[in-house]
Computed example of a mutant assay.
Amino acid sequence: MVREHTAGKPQHGVIWTDLKPREIAQTMTQRVDARVSVRTVRQLLKSNGFSRRQSQKKKSFKSHAQRVQSRLLLLCDGGGSNPSNSWLFKADLQDLADRLGLEIRVAHYAPYCSKHNPIEHRVFPHITRACAGVVFSSVSLVRELIEKACTKTGLKVTADILDGVYEAGRTVTRHARASLNIDYDSTLPSWNYSIRSRSVA
């Protein structure tokens, strides 16, 4: 049941699920018609090599601080202006990687799975609450309201207004595609890849 909700890099022994133990326990209880405890689920996950995503990330940050400084992780939806099959999105990320001298690690959520993106749960509900009942009369008002979003646990939101003019109808030539410094993962390569700065390639 966790197969569709599993991510990570199995070849490096790092796998996790975005389902909470409580959610898994509830589903298992319904399927086997017997009560399954959260503790049992945690033991099953551990025995099958699953780790908590947050703790794995923190461990990586502490043990590879220098490496982290040159890398940038993007969790992206699969549609809109940044779909996984968009060469234009990849080309713009390549320009960013070149300007910053960074490796940009990209992980796209599968179609219809953007609800599992942490920003959906950690930020958006609080922004919605901050804007509730207000008629938007200007962009600056929206920015002001968004920046009022906060929580007792310390969430603070910073918003900025992008007033650039975006060119329509842009395309990426075959030559430009060939020049991209992209390293695709062996697991789900269309959704997981890294774009490295061409200046340090």
Rank of each mutant, 00 (worst) to 15 (best):
R3Y: 12
E4A: 13
T6S: 08
T6F: 01
A7K: 02
A7Y: 08
A7V: 07
P10I: 05
H12C: 10
W16S: 08
T17G: 05
L19R: 09
L19V: 07
K20N: 07
E23F: 06
I24K: 01
T27N: 12
M28W: 11
Q30L: 15
R31W: 06
D33G: 12
R35A: 10
V36Y: 12
V36H: 10
V36N: 06
V36W: 14
S37G: 12
V38G: 05
R42C: 10
L45V: 09
S47A: 14
N48P: 10
N48E: 14
G49A: 11
F50N: 04
F50D: 01
Q56S: 11
S60G: 02
K62W: 08
Q69Y: 12
S70E: 11
R71K: 12
L72K: 08
L74R: 00
L75D: 03
L75I: 14
C76Q: 11
D77Y: 12
G78F: 13
G79R: 09
G79Q: 07
G80V: 03
S81M: 05
N85M: 10
A91W: 14
L93C: 13
L96I: 09
A97I: 00
L100H: 03
L100V: 08
L100G: 02
E103R: 08
A107L: 11
Y109S: 07
A110T: 11
P111V: 04
C113Q: 01
K115H: 07
P118T: 05
H121P: 03
V123I: 13
F124E: 02
P125K: 04
P125I: 00
H126S: 01
A130K: 00
A130E: 00
A132R: 03
V135Y: 00
F136Y: 02
F136K: 04
S140Q: 09
S140R: 06
E144I: 02
E144Y: 02
T151Q: 08
K152S: 06
L155T: 00
A159I: 04
A159S: 08
D160G: 07
D160T: 07
V165M: 08
V165H: 02
Y166S: 03
E167P: 07
A168M: 11
T173K: 01
R174K: 14
H175A: 13
A178L: 15
S179Q: 09
L180M: 11
I182E: 02
D183I: 13
D185E: 05
L188P: 03
S190F: 02
N192K: 06
N192L: 07
I195D: 01
S197H: 05
R198G: 12
R198I: 14
R198V: 12
S199F: 14
